[in-house]
Design a protein around this nucleic acid. Structure first.
Length: 771
DNA sequence: TGCACCGATGTTTTT
DNA sequence: CATCGGTGCA
């Protein structure tokens, strides 16, 4: 065995070593948060390779592409990068998209099939509803899409739907008797367009493995060792794929934590992990319960939260780490103030404890909450990076360019065609498109083919329009020919130049237009990097098809161009899974927001929200901060809020309620630290709530007005401080200015405080009072 | 057919 | 508060 590997293996604890060294046969690792789950997976793969297992026969399914990449890197460090390269690692979606490309013809799909994203699906469903003449208020496309997605994830095909009277009745009962018809039309249209949506990538893989035993056998042979990370978040469709592939050799290793199952809304079935032992009677079960990540306070507080759930595997996560600081709970008036509090707090910790920006994360339940945080961070010049939300590839201008590329790779792609047929405007309007759709149905041709042959098919339209159609078709066909001899970057460059999109945006000369041009340039850079990167890999060609697949399955977290830059991370709790940060702020701890109003109807929904909170809290290594507001902007209106029930569920011995300082709001010129005196806690937060005077509605209005003004810190920046001055700091008490350095916004002062020693404070933000 | 404007409408979470 | 779809006019 590689000596590096041996010495590294010795660094594992016994509980980690056991599953790592388990060679053949099924095993399940129930791993508590922060217990070294990823380590076990990486070492296990490295160990298998050291035992002579061919890397080509190992398939590891991870939850994100990023996780796969990082794991591959770490394995590369253990066994050598060239060997590690041959491992198959990725998300279910990306791995099986590749397999489906190779086998597409068996299912009647072109090998360069398009992957429809959620937006494509929505548009298609909306147009089907419209074409069928259904009431769009009853058939809401998002609900319909959700229903179809649920069917697919449970492997209910159109045929199965029609064979199941219960399903049909359920839809009829909810006044949607045409659900099956929409489902059928949607599937047909996707097929005709040579397109698969996200769910199809799994459903069609199942179809492939079920219908073609030889194909199944091929991949069973190929992937003799299977590893699945985050197994608690697999849905039924994924579960069946794994079971089918593992059936022959039973070398299946799944790792997960039932307490961190947070994807039920997209079909994840927690029973997959709860019942794993039933599926594989010979299974070895390993538990990792020692947490290496967090303080005792955080681990125990998290345990106290999850104990409120009924449906779980019993385990005790523990740690030998220090006790650590209590979890701070802050009450703020508005969401804007919450942002300011977080920014101030981060700032103070940076100064006092010499922390980097990257040591901090702000986690929230919904993407919309990021705005208040961004505003506050910007005001304090704290660099940050947002993950998720509207991802780069979902921006309009990017989707427009990509639509051209998708269309020339797969001319049957109806959604892409509709998107760009008149963008930039070329005089082909809705009426024409509608006529083409009708004709394409009549002749059973794709939309592009119909358009291309509009004349011979005698689609009724005037000569001018016909010419425009021909011009468009000619342009696309020219791109197709060019594409044969160009790589992904060159063809994209050509297309963006030829369609005149950039010129169009330049003409606008608006800030948004400029930003869009920059985005398109960034896209081009991204494609160049991609083609360069692919040159080194033997099994790929750097073709447009591959790039488009990468793009459609990439998440924003994958597009991290400078992972080393020092920034505060902002993301939803869902995206934070698997990550860790020294300091974690969990904001918006309010009823109806977290837990979400949509998830309080059933016990299981509420339990999932609670697991989500568990995930959030266990991201923290050293300190966690919770905050809630009394009112927050939602749909542009100020809504009253109530503290989340989850706050009360934490064992009170681990929390510390920060007493709200009203002066902070009423007199922004007075320098008060947001960290006031520790509140004495004998009561639950909700009881306490009553004793602390809540602002009256008119006061609230006044607060809001102050709130919308400049933050107090900016006003303070004008204070002229000189050496030798005596000052008062809300936290450090009184002190003497020893030295002033820096200029303008970055003016700093070294101040000797009594009892706290010397501190270097940035004047712009330090809350100082001159004595 | 294209564009500017208006009102309705909706927000969980993501591959 | 955004975005979307619909409407009405050039």
């Amino acid at each position: 065995m590689n000596t590096d590997l041996t010495s590294n293996l010795n660094a594992l604890n016994d509980a980690q070593k056991a599953p790592t060294l388990h060679k053949d046969g099924p095993l399940i690792v129930i791993a508590g948060a922060g217990s070294g789950k990823t380590r076990v997976l990486t070492f296990r793969i490295a160990y298998l390779m050291s035992q002579g297992v061919d890397p080509f026969s190992i398939l590891a399914l991870t939850f994100t592409n990023k996780a796969a990449r990082e794991m591959k890197e770490r394995i590369g460090e253990l066994v050598g990068a060239s060997e590690a390269k041959n491992l198959w690692m990725g998300t279910f979606h990306s791995v099986f998209a590749r397999i489906l490309r190779a086998e597409a013809d068996k299912l009647g799909f072109p090998s360069n099939f398009t992957i429809y994203d959620t937006q494509d699906s929505d548009r298609l469903i909306a147009s089907i509803i419209k074409e069928m003449g259904l009431d769009k208020d009853i058939y809401k496309y998002k609900q319909v899409r959700g229903r179809i997605s649920a069917f697919k994830n449970s492997l209910i095909t159109v045929k199965a739907y029609y064979n199941d009277p219960d399903l049909q009745e359920a839809d009829a009962m909810s006044r949607r008797p045409e659900m099956g018809a929409i489902y059928k039309e949607y599937v047909d249209r996707c097929f005709k367009a040579g397109a698969m949506d996200f769910d199809d990538l799994l459903l069609r893989t199942n179809e492939l493995l079920n219908r073609f035993p030889d194909v199944l056998a091929k991949y069973q042979e190929r992937f003799r060792y299977l590893l699945v990370d985050e197994y608690q978040d697999t849905n039924h469709s994924q579960y069946l794929i794994v079971r089918a592939l593992a059936d022959r050799y039973q070398n299946i290793c799944v790792v997960g934590d039932d307490a961190q199952s947070i994807y039920a809304f997209r079909g994840a079935n927690i029973n997959n992990i709860l019942n794993f032992q039933k599926d594989y009677p010979d299974v070895s079960l390993y538990r990792l319960e020692q947490n290496y990540r967090s303080t005792k306070t955080i681990v125990n507080a998290a345990n106290s939260i999850i104990s409120h759930n009924k449906n779980k595997i019993d385990k005790v996560v523990w740690t030998s780490n220090d006790q650590g600081a209590p979890i701070q709970i802050n009450r703020l008036i508005t969401d804007a103030e919450e942002g300011r509090y977080v920014a101030s707090s981060i700032f103070e910790f940076k100064m006092q404890e010499q922390r980097k920006n990257a040591d901090f994360a702000i986690l929230y339940r919904t993407n919309a909450q990021s705005r208040a945080m961004e505003d506050a961070l910007r005001k304090r010049d704290i660099p940050y990076r947002i993950y998720g939300g509207l991802s780069f590839y979902q921006r309009k201008e990017i989707k427009d360019v990509l639509a051209y590329l998708r269309l020339l790779v797969n001319p049957k792609d109806e959604e892409s065609l509709k998107r760009i047929i008149n963008y930039p405007p070329r005089g082909i309007g809705q009426t024409t498109v509608d006529k083409l759709v009708v004709a394409s149905k009549k002749h059973n041709l794709s939309l592009f083919e119909t358009l291309d042959r509009a004349k011979e098919l005698e689609v009724p339209m005037n000569a001018g329009t016909l010419t425009k159609l021909t011009d468009f078709a000619t342009m696309i066909k020219r791109f197709q020919i060019e594409n044969e001899s160009l790589n992904a970057f060159e063809i994209t460059d050509l297309v963006t130049k030829k369609i005149g999109l950039v010129q169009e945006l330049k003409k606008e000369a608006t800030p948004e237009g400029i930003a869009r041009i920059e985005n398109i340039e960034e896209l081009l850079n991204g494609i160049r990097d991609f083609t360069e990167g692919q040159k080194e890999l033997a099994d790929t060609t750097g073709s447009l098809t591959e790039f488009l697949e990468d793009v459609s399955l990439a998440t924003d977290a994958d597009r991290d161009n400078d992972p080393n830059s020092d920034r505060v991370s902002l993301m939803t709790i869902h995206l934070a899974k698997g990550l860790e940060f020294p300091y974690v702020y969990i904001v918006g701890m309010e009823e109806d927001l977290f837990p979400s109003a949509m998830s309080m109807n059933t016990r299981s929904e509420l339990e999932e929200e609670r697991r989500l909170f568990y995930v959030a809290l266990t991201r923290a290594e050293q300190r966690a901060f919770l905050s809630y507001t009394l009112s927050r902007y939602r749909w542009g209106k100020l809504i009253d809020a109530e503290p989340s029930r989850f706050i009360e569920e934490i064992d009170p011995k681990y929390v510390h309620h920060i007493k709200p300082k009203e002066e902070y709001h009423y007199k922004p010129l007075v320098n008060t630290s947001i960290f006031g005196e520790p509140a004495k806690i004998e009561r639950t937060p909700r009881e306490k709530e009553k004793t602390i005077s809540s602002p009256t509605p008119s006061q609230l209005k006044k607060l809001r007005r102050i709130d919308s003004h400049e933050s107090s810190s900016e006003i303070e920046s004008s204070i002229e401080l000189k050496e030798g001055m005596e000052v008062e700091h809300a936290r450090f008490g009184s002190g003497v200015v020893e030295r002033i350095e820096g200029d303008r916004n970055n003016k700093k002062a070294v101040i000797a405080f009594q009892g706290f020693g010397k501190k270097n404070l940035l004047l712009r933000f330090a809350k100082l009072k001159i004595k």
